[in-house]
Amino acid sequence: MNISLTGRHVELTEPIKAYMNTSINTLSKYNMDIISVNLIASSQTKKGKPLSVVEFVINLAHKNSIVIKQSDQDLYAAIDLAAERAQKAMRRIHDKENTHHKDGINEAKNEAFKSVDLHEADEAMEDEIIPVELTLYKPREVEDVLNDLKDSNKMFEIFLDNENKTRVLYKRSDGRFGLY
C-alpha cells in the first residue's frame, strides 16, 4: 500500500504525520486490496474562522476509489472524523462483498441433486410403516372429558368412549353440553 501525506498551507510535523499514519493503518483491518491512500491536509478560512480540511483518497483494486473530505476547527478532530467515515465506507464494501453471494437457482438445484440419489430415497421411503397408537385415541370416560371441557376454552372435544365409538362432546349456546 502506497501512502502519500500532503500538507497544503499546513506544516506537517512528525506528530501529525504519525497520527495520520495510524489512522490510515486502521483501514487495513478489512483485508481489502488497497493500492494507495492519499491524505491531504489543508487549511482554509471560512467566514473569518480558520478550518482544517482533511481529504482521504483511497484507491482499491478492481473497485471505485473512495474520496472523503472532512473539515473541522481542529486538525486532529478532522483526521479522526475522516478516518471514521473511511472505515465506514470500507466496511460497507467489505460486507457487500462477503455477504451478497448470489448463486443462481439452477446451481443450487444441481448441488442438491448431486448429493441425493433419488432411486435410493424412493426405496427408503417404501421400506416400512410402523403404526403408533396415540394417547388421544385411547378410550376415555364421558365424565373425564366433560371435566376437561369445562376447564378449557374449547367448544368441543372428540374422543373414543369405552366401546371404541368416536364421540363428540360440545358446549351448547344455552350453557349446557351435548354429546354425539
Rank of each mutant, 00 (worst) to 15 (best):
N25A: 07
E111A: 14
N110C: 05
L118Q: 07
A121E: 00
D161V: 03
I158M: 15
L81E: 08
K114Y: 00
R176Y: 09
D72K: 07
I105S: 12
I68L: 09
V37C: 10
A112E: 01
P139I: 12
K165G: 01
S52R: 12
R8K: 14
R140K: 15
L39H: 05
K17M: 08
E128G: 03
L179V: 09
M125L: 14
D33W: 02
Q44T: 12
T166H: 06
L39Y: 02
D117A: 08
L149H: 04
G7P: 07
V53F: 06
K69I: 02
D117T: 11
D33T: 09
N98I: 02
T22A: 10
V132G: 04
L27T: 06
I3L: 09
K138R: 15
Y170C: 07
I66M: 08
K138Q: 15
Q44E: 14
T135G: 09
Q70L: 07
S115T: 14
L118Y: 08
N147K: 11
R172C: 13
Y30K: 10
N147W: 01
I79K: 01
F113T: 01
V54F: 06
Y76C: 05
Q44V: 14
G175K: 11
E84P: 01
T6C: 03
N2Y: 08
M155K: 12
E84T: 08
V10W: 01
A82I: 00
V168K: 13
